[in-house]
Computed example of a mutant assay.
Amino acid sequence: MIVKDWCMFCGECAGVCPRNLIEVKEYSLVFNDEECKDCSTCVKVCPVTALEKD
């Protein structure tokens, strides 16, 4: 996943991840890429389209 510069760190993506692989920490997103199954739930819910699939 790519986090573009316009991420607001709102936590919407972290809140919907079915595997709890995203964490918002002080103006950054922490992903567990190795466990991600590319369901795209986080991409779909992002209000500013800051996330993309690789």
Rank of each mutant, 00 (worst) to 15 (best):
M1D: 03
E35G: 09
V45K: 11
R19T: 11
V24D: 04
S28F: 12
K37L: 15
G15E: 12
C17D: 05
Y27W: 13
C13R: 02
V30W: 07
V16I: 12
M1C: 04
C42T: 09
D54Y: 07
C13N: 05
S28K: 12
V16W: 05
C42G: 03
V43H: 03
E26D: 06
C46D: 09
K44T: 13
N20T: 10
D5I: 08
M1L: 11
V43E: 01
S40I: 10
S28A: 12
E34T: 07
C13F: 02
K25V: 14
I22L: 11
W6L: 12
V48Q: 01
E26N: 13
M8E: 15
K37N: 06
V48M: 07
E23D: 12
P47A: 06
C10L: 01
L29H: 07
K4E: 03
T49A: 10
S40R: 13
K25H: 08
N32A: 07
T49M: 12
I22E: 06
E52A: 10
L21H: 09
C46A: 02
L29D: 01
Y27T: 12
L21F: 09
V16Y: 01
V3P: 00
G15T: 09
L29E: 08
P47G: 07
D38N: 12
D5T: 09
E12D: 13
S40K: 15
K4A: 06
G11W: 10
L51H: 08
C17H: 02
C46R: 04
K37T: 14
L51P: 04
V30Y: 09
E34W: 10
A50L: 03
G11N: 00
V24W: 02
K37C: 09
C46F: 02
C17L: 00
C10Q: 03
L21V: 05
C36M: 06
C7T: 04
E12L: 01
L51C: 03
S40G: 05
E12W: 11
